[in-house]
Design a protein around this nucleic acid. Structure first.
Length: 486
RNA sequence: GGCGCCAUCGCCAAGUGGUAAGGCAGAGGCCUGCAAAGCCUUUAUUCCCCGGUUCGAAUCCGGGUGGCGCCUCCA
């Protein structure tokens, strides 16, 4: 965990023992367009963090907000000739659908800026009353010079920033660094009544207002993408701490970017891929697996090759799951190899997994430990297949339980072993023409193999492959694996 | 210009003072009619370069080189 305020790098273990309520807030999205993989990374990272904190015994109240009124929304709605409210609604819906597809759990509270207008106005008013803000013709600005610690979160010096200030700053501001808390509305723009006339909130204030209203100060954890550190989170700190005279957040968590060819994926560069696009080509679990295969703070390069590798890695688990599922169980005590393997998994690999997660949510290392279960567990099946062909029900249940447990944290493997056959299921409908045909060919091939008619068998297999399936001959008979094609 | 991050096997990637996890790809073996899946073995005396601190550094410090980010909207 990153703590930019005082340089410590880990959540203190004492916090956990005290077991207090943990409040966590992540800056949500501004809803004016489709979410891309960068948004997905932030969402998955925080999803796993919250899941893990809960797993570890914290009582977490997780808030993720929507900024549903802002300049970009207004601009976009004008471009498209759609009412701003309808635009925001549409993209909230789109966001929710995409995130659900990725297995992101809902936050405990998902407030919208427009639902907290009174809180926002109250906060701005209070800042004005306390002398931290000034009103110029209905625009209210935060006076950065009045808040001495300004820059502490992002490690910036206000003097340096003034020296490098861009041209085109608003002449009416006392200082180029001052930022808008409230903006007066122009003709045709959405507005709310306020002590300064009709207007709307500035960008940063809604987060301060919503988190203050719903969680209070200080937040235990606040986070978002690295690009929010400045100015967004810096300004939230200024607003909230100036107003309440309390720390805004104890811990900050900022995730790294998703890159394309080593460059940040972003709207302005046009090098982004929307969640929807990627979901058309890869299953959500694979996207999650990909996103979690690098530590959340490091940059992560998005490419077909990287996604392909994630797929291959993920399928190693699916192969294991399927293999366990199709192996019959018998009710008996576990034999030596079964019980040893389960012991290794539960007493060595699971603790290793947890240690990695304890170390700043190191999912990359945690996933690494999961791979060592593969050899152990497949080895047991190798042994079983050579003898009775059946495993102990206890063993199967133990393996299932282990994966369900880690799956609850990672957001895949959640249903345990049965995800294997489900993953490779030839079709979901069952009456798929191609599937029936392929299955028939597979049966013919099994017959041919019995007759040791290898030429005929290989011919049939070629046909099946052409239909988009690979064949695995298992002790339980042939199975078809759909080969996903782009 | 200011501030900051990163550089580990062909590729991806853990590792923040104690002697280089894991995955992909590759090689060999086993299994298989052949495959697929799977198992076993194997692949960095070395962590961008140069100095320094230390008994000991990929890990700390200084200086380079290269890449990236924020400073304007951005997860």
């Amino acid at each position: 965990m990153e703590d930019l305020l005082n340089g410590t790098s880990c959540l203190q273990h004492t916090d956990r023992k005290e077991g207090g309520v943990q409040t966590s807030q992540s800056s949500g999205v501004t809803v004016y367009d489709y979410c891309h993989i960068g948004h997905a990374r932030a969402a998955v990272a925080f999803d796993v963090i919250v899941r893990y904190l809960r797993f570890s015994g914290y009582d977490v109240t997780y808030v993720r907000n929507y900024t549903d009124i802002d300049d970009k929304i207004i601009a976009r709605s004008n471009e498209e000739g759609v009412h701003w409210k309808d635009l925001a609604e549409k993209f909230i819906e789109v966001h929710d659908v995409d995130m659900e597809a990725l297995g992101i759990q809902r936050a405990d509270m998902e407030p919208r800026a427009t639902e907290h207008m009174e809180d926002i106005i109250r906060l701005v008013k209070s800042l004005e009353d306390k002398g931290y803000a000034y009103n110029v013709d209905g625009d209210v600005y935060f006076e950065v010079a009045k808040f001495k610690p300004y820059g502490k979160l992002s490690g910036r010096n206000p003097e340096d920033m003034r020296a490098g200030a861009r041209v085109g700053v608003d002449e009416r501001k006392k200082d180029p660094l001052d930022f808008a808390l409230w903006k007066s509305s122009k003709e045709g723009e959405p507005w709310w009544d306020s002590p300064w006339g009709r207007g709307r909130p500035g960008w940063h204030i809604e987060c301060s207002a919503m988190s203050g209203a719903l969680l209070g100060q200080p937040l235990d954890i606040h986070g978002g993408g690295k690009d929010l550190i400045f100015p967004h989170h810096e300004n939230e700190v200024a607003q909230s701490e100036a107003e309440a005279d309390l720390d805004f957040a104890k811990y900050w968590i900022h995730n790294g970017f998703v890159n394309v060819d080593s460059e940040k994926m972003s709207k302005s560069l046009g090098n982004f891929f929307t969640i929807r696009e990627v979901l058309e080509r890869y299953r959500p679990e694979i996207i999650r697996f990909f996103l979690l295969s690098t530590h959340y703070r490091s940059p992560l390069d998005f490419s077909d090759q990287a996604l392909e590798e994630a797929r291959v890695r993920y399928e190693r688990f699916m192969n294991l799951f399927s293999r366990v599922c199709r192996t019959e169980t018998e009710s008996r005590q576990m034999n030596e190899s079964e019980s040893e393997s389960l012991q290794t998994v539960l007493e060595e690999m699971e603790p290793a997994f947890i240690n990695a997660m304890d170390d700043d949510f190191n999912t990359a290392a945690a996933l690494g430990h999961l791979f060592s279960t593969l050899g152990t567990l497949n080895g047991v099946l190798d042994g079983v297949e050579a003898v009775t062909g059946k495993v102990s029900g206890h063993w199967k249940a133990g393996v299932d339980g282990f994966f369900k447990s880690v799956g609850g944290i990672l957001g895949f493997f959640e249903n345990g072993l049965r995800e294997g056959p489900a993953y490779f299921a030839v079709s979901t409908t069952g009456d798929d023409e191609g599937e029936r045909k392929a299955r028939a060919l597979a049966e013919d091939r099994a017959e041919a193999r019995k007759r040791k008619d290898w030429n005929r068998a290989d011919e049939l297999r070629d046909q099946i492959i052409e239909m988009g399936y690979s064949v695995q001959d298992t002790p339980q008979g042939p199975i078809l694996i759909p080969v996903k094609q782009d």
